[in-house]
């Protein structure tokens, strides 16, 4: 079953989101402090739930490239990671790449905290260029 990809353009307050199974692109890039986190993230979570519940045989590599996110976004990021964990538990290969800008210890430590909550292979990568 081919899934319609989900593309969300970035704004000052919300990240760029690419969920494209056909091209194996799953990315979250930018800032995340939407005025209404539920309104922004619900379609994303629903899309991912439906995708994973349909049990596709697909390896997943998901990139997280945030400069900043607020606490409510943190909850949604955790839920996304749990969904990826569920996908791995169904026998698929998953990989999470967590990017942080050089010297941004807050984002580095956030990645380390998330890394401890799941068993999915989790790479923490320093980037030197701005996105």
């Amino acid at each position: 079953m081919s899934y319609k990809p989900l593309y969300i353009n970035p704004t000052d307050e919300t990240p760029q989101v690419i969920l494209d199974p056909e091209n194996n692109r799953f990315e979250f890039v930018g800032n995340s402090y939407p005025e209404n986190s539920t309104k922004f993230y619900s379609p994303i979570l629903n899309w991912m739930k439906e995708f994973i519940d349909s049990s596709p045989k697909q390896d997943l590599s998901v990139d997280f490239n945030f400069d900043y996110f607020n606490t409510s976004s943190a909850k949604y990021i955790l839920e996304i990671l749990r969904l990826i964990q569920d996908h791995q538990d169904k026998g698929n290969k998953c990989l999470i790449r967590w990017y942080y800008f050089q010297d941004d210890t807050d984002m580095l430590e956030a990645g380390e905290d998330y890394q401890m909550t799941i068993t999915v292979p989790f790479e923490i990568i320093e980037r030197t260029d701005t996105f």
Binding site: D106, E109, A110
Partner: peptide, 8 residues
């Protein structure tokens, strides 16, 4: 989440 919130 509390730790993340504090850090942010």
């Amino acid at each position: 989440l509390t730790s993340l919130g504090d850090r942010l």
